[in-house]
Design a protein around this nucleic acid. Structure first.
Length: 511
DNA sequence: CGGCAAATACTG
DNA sequence: CAGTAT
DNA sequence: GCCG
């Protein structure tokens, strides 16, 4: 019977024994808990949205200048109340712009080239300015460079010692390459987030395909190795450096350039030099080809299996592939892990943007049906970052009337299940609605005073139920839906929160 | 040289 | 509580 | 592995 189980995993359910498949389905019992008997009725828009008269944008002048503006939150709520775009002037807390580097010949002007309406941000810019000044000299002590050992020799730790008196370690001198310690003048201008010491990755723009993607891919391999071996510190170190590299808009030309990026130091710079010279990084290749890591990566790719469990499967249980998991461990898997195994291959398939859009549209449609047209939805994640193919679908739903988002996640999942779009619910979180109900019952005042920032969400398995029966066997009495199963995250956000606010501002300004 | 992302929720 | 996920 |  073991070989029969093999068949399940290769995805040939249809020609396999029906009995087997059913037993699997039974064992899984993954159908989401929400019963479809109570179909949520659509709230036929009792409350139509007041359409505001088309009017001149009172803030045109403000938005046409290059200054960054910070407004009081009340501007938004008041605008909402009046259903029109209020002038921002009375709400303006601060406006300013990023100044250029002090030494920059392009800006002979004074340093105080920003207009502070309040004193708050001053210190930040002062700090940035100070940093920039201190940074003008080369971070590398060129004179005292130590010649370090050959890079590709397999010794990874020895060459990377930090020179005692400089913070930055010297880079390996590679005479055969232009990817060397360059002159201090040939570095490209650092993007603002480097110069200004921007602290959070979310403040940098992200690119779908950064200029240094190939190098980043190598670092990702090392990071994965750190992950699988339980080296959490290493994971974090590589994560931060990769994040900085991914936001870096220039093609790297010298290793020294990397030292200027936050989270990047000698190790990463040396890896870059190796990459630039040989087109690959030995440590990354080794990690990728490592047999143990290959097995553990296989398990790690099961949804619901993390590094710890992947290692356990391999080293404690002694399993070596998915068949072993099914044969010897099926009953010990959690419910979501069984789902993860069942759709192992499909979850790894990339999702084309067009399909992401289709899925989002379907979800939006159901949300509108369940509430009203005030529903706003926004696809985030890989799609929003412009990726051609996405690993999953992340969609945020919101509504200006917060009461309309109450329990909506439950309703949406039920509705989509009933129409067979959602095949499984991996996880559903209703904490926010739970708490919201309590406070709402007490405070009849609607919007204010809640401190929770968690979001209702559902992580589900999605499959397009509309399929064309296989052409090979059109008379099949029970044709099979071969549309791939997708991972979809539906997130409910209070309208007030950032993402919702962002696109509400966009639409307001367009009106 | 020591410390190390943040917050939150579900599952078993 | 440990593990996993967002 | 980086940072203070």
């Amino acid at each position: 019977g073991h070989k029969a189980k093999r068949g399940k995993l290769s995805g040939e359910y249809e020609d396999g024994k029906k009995e087997t498949e059913e037993s699997i389905l039974h064992e899984i019992s993954t159908d989401s808990e929400t019963e479809d008997e109570h179909k949520p009725k659509s709230n036929s828009a009792k409350r139509k949205r007041v359409s505001s008269p088309v009017e001149q944008d009172p803030n045109e002048a403000y938005f046409s200048n290059p200054y960054i503006k910070v407004l009081k939150w009340e501007w938004f709520t008041d605008s909402q109340k009046e259903s029109r775009v209020l002038p921002i002037e009375p709400y303006l807390l601060y406006q300013g712009r990023i100044i250029d580097r002090p030494g920059d010949p392009k800006t002979p002007g004074k340093g105080s080239s920003f207009t502070a309406r309040t004193k708050t941000p001053q210190s930040i810019l002062e700090r940035a300015r100070a940093d920039a000044e201190n940074d003008t000299s080369s971070p590398v002590q060129q004179r005292s460079n130590r010649k370090l050992g050959q890079i590709g020799g397999g010794r990874v730790s020895a060459p990377f010692q930090t020179t005692p008196h400089s913070k930055r370690a010297a880079l390996l001198h590679q005479t055969t390459s232009e990817h060397d310690l360059g002159q201090s003048s040939d570095l490209p201008e650092m993007p603002p987030w480097v110069q200004n010491d921007v602290k959070y990755a979310c403040q940098r723009s992200t690119h779908a395909d950064p200029p240094n993607a190939a190098f980043i891919a190598q670092l990702d391999k090392i990071k994965l190795a750190r992950l699988l071996t339980g080296d959490e510190i290493g994971v974090r170190a590589y994560s931060t450096s990769i994040a900085a590299l991914a936001a870096y808009p220039h093609k790297l030309s010298t290793g020294r350039e990397i030292l200027l990026l936050p989270g990047c130091d000698a190790k990463i710079a040396n890896l870059y030099v190796e990459f630039a010279n040989y087109g690959k990084i030995q440590e990354a290749e080794d990690a990728e080809n490592n047999e143990e890591l290959k097995v553990q990566k296989l398990f790690y790719n099961i949804w619901g299996v993390g590094a710890t469990t992947a290692r356990d499967f391999h080293k404690e249980k002694g399993w070596r592939d998915l068949d072993d998991v099914v044969e010897y461990g099926w009953q010990t898997l959690t419910r979501v892990q069984q789902i993860g195994v069942k759709y192992y291959d499909e979850f790894l398939l990339p999702i084309p943007r067009s399909e992401v859009e289709d899925i989002a549209a379907t979800i939006h449609k159901h949300a509108v049906k369940l509430r009203d047209a005030g529903i706003q939805s926004l696809v985030v994640g890989g799609y929003r970052r412009g990726k051609e193919h996405c690993g999953d679908v992340d969609i945020i739903l919101s509504h200006p009337d917060e009461s309309k988002t109450l329990n909506i996640i439950t309703d949406i999942v039920a509705s989509l299940e009933q129409e067979s779009w959602i095949t499984h619910t991996l996880l559903i979180s209703t904490k926010t609605s739970d708490r919201g109900q309590q406070t709402l019952a007490l405070n009849s005042s609607s919007t204010h005073g809640h401190g929770f920032d968690s979001l209702d969400k559902a992580l589900v398995v999605w499959q397009n139920p509309h399929y064309t029966p296989s052409t090979s066997n059109p008379s099949d009495p029970k044709p099979k839906n071969t549309n791939p199963h997708r991972r979809v995250d539906i997130i409910i956000s209070p309208f007030k929160s950032g993402v919702a606010l962002q696109f509400s501002l966009t639409s307001l300004r367009k009106s």
